[in-house]
Design a protein around this nucleic acid. Structure first.
Lengths: 295, 295
DNA sequence: CTGAGTTTGTGCATGTGCGCACAGCCTTTT
DNA sequence: AAAAGGCTGTGCGCACATGCACAAACTCAG
């Protein structure tokens, strides 16, 4: 058995889904004879009978049915590729409003917006930065990039990965306070607005909310930590971007949260917004380290 | 732009991953010239430039990078197909032990084991039925099919969907007790062993654990409900298989739980067990209504 | 029964797509 | 400086996969 050509899989998928050679050939836009021969050749080279030949068509045998899930996955992926392809060909245009947090906006998005400009020159993005909870923040925005455990029911979107948190301080601060007990450290934390979130809970239990300074912005906290004013619990991508912060030991129970790119359910059918969702999802998924499945 | 051939996507993926025409051609086992021509043709027909030609190779442009996630997905799917294909060709053999609950064993598995026999005639499955909690139940089994919110860390596997619960009774019982208040119904529930699970919690809050009869087996409860002895909270697939049970109204907060097929981490590398995991995962995923992504 | 619609399967001639060889350009090594 | 090996790009000749018939079997409608 040689290398497996995706073409053959496309033929198998079409026949499995359409139920007959002829129907598959019409769906693929080729002659039915070629479908017949390709399937026969594949089965021969794999030494596996995938279909039962019947008078009214081809029917999947059990050994073929085992492939069905993966085939459907490939089909969906190719459909997604096709959409993306002819949307960059035809080009989408217009201005869209994107709501997200300050960290994502300042640290992650600029590079992606630069790329978006190259792919879709006529798309304009207005970024609305806010650290308010996720419920209120669709105000006027079509696209939402938000951390959170899950998505409220009125939104539709996809999870692009998880945001891990860690405790960080400046190299300087950590050198000066190496031997200090955990409870004796100077803490930089989030204001009461984060109560109830996983980060808020962790700060309450570990730092007892006794903060040297507090702010409702991880960007601000990172800046404070860079100045050597104390330790802060930050998303690791924020600390990494800074370059001046180093991790503080290995504290147990560090929180994490999902990251979602979403839109209102009503918008989900619009082609341009769907394309933008997938663009940002793909880009951010790479940022967070290729984590998790796509669809 | 014509129909999109998966072959072309395979070429794009290879070039994107290998970074050059020549490397991709070697990986695919074809001449580098054909890779060149296929990529050029695809770009021409889509009117989209996917790669930047550089002296040291092809590099993905932003509009191509948007496809990368989907391409990788297709690659993984095709690899999975390949594994499944040449495992049924070479055929795996031996006896394996599968641990699961009574409902899954009796209602879902028989059909799948019948198909498994056709695909892998020399594989023998010993089914170990037990409704004990998930932690203890790997005793001697290589394969585990278990409901639960998540997977303990020593196990490795995949979620195949969610089992939804509902309240069911016999047509006869529901006709006789149409006007009875919810709190006045006769309840059939699970024994104390299920305390702590989502179903146990629901029963405690709604039925107050006042049961006409109780058992640690949904199969048993379904049989009791069929006799008209009362209402029981059952997995919907159990009630559907019975055919004699009808749903009782729409009660809020009905629980649900994930369904996992898994093995011990140490076993995950073994080819035959990996193949069996994917077989049962695919089959059960179809049972639960095609839910969720694969990988 | 007949005809028009499925379906799978089979020869045959054609043309498309492939491998091969070679050219050009670059970097690194001897 | 020359040689070796990386890369992309191009023309040529041939084989193989494709499309186009046509055959056979079956179903359904009139």
């Amino acid at each position: 058995m040689h290398k497996l050509r995706w073409d053959d899989l496309q033929f198998v998928h079409a026949v499995a889904e359409q139920g007959s050679l002829s129907a598959a050939s019409r769906a693929l836009g080729v002659n039915h004879a070629t479908v017949l021969r390709r399937i026969a050749l594949l089965e021969a080279s794999c030494e596996v009978k995938l279909f039962d030949r019947q008078k009214d068509g081809y029917r999947l045998r059990p050994e073929g049915r085992a492939l069905l899930a993966s085939l459907k996955l490939m089909d969906h992926a190719s459909a997604r590729i096709r959409r993306s392809l002819d949307s960059t060909a035809k080009g989408i245009e217009g201005t869209f409003r994107l709501a997200t947090t300050d960290t994502i906006a300042c640290l992650l998005l600029p590079e992606h917006l630069e790329n978006l400009r190259k792919v879709h020159p006529n798309v304009n993005i207005e970024v609305a930065v806010s650290n308010d909870p996720i419920d209120l923040s669709l105000s006027g925005a079509e696209i939402l990039v938000r951390p959170g455990p899950d998505l409220p029911p009125e939104l539709s979107g996809l999870k692009v990965g998880t945001v891990d948190f860690g405790v960080f301080g400046s190299r300087d601060y950590l050198a000066r306070n190496r031997d200090r007990a955990i409870t004796e450290h100077k803490w930089l934390g989030t204001a009461p607005g984060f109560a109830g979130s996983t980060v808020g809970e962790w700060q309450l239990s570990t730092m007892e909310n006794r903060f040297e300074f507090s702010a409702d912005s991880f960007l601000m906290l990172a800046a404070l930590a860079e100045k050597g004013l104390g330790l802060a619990m930050l998303p690791v991508f924020v600390a990494q971007k800074s370059g001046q912060l180093v991790a503080f030991g290995d504290l147990a129970g560090r929180p994490e949260t999902g990251l979602w790119v979403a839109t209102h359910k009503d918008f989900r059918q619009q082609r341009d917004i769907e394309v933008l969702l997938e663009f940002f999802a793909g880009a951010l998924r790479r940022d967070l380290g290729e984590g998790g499945p796509v669809s």
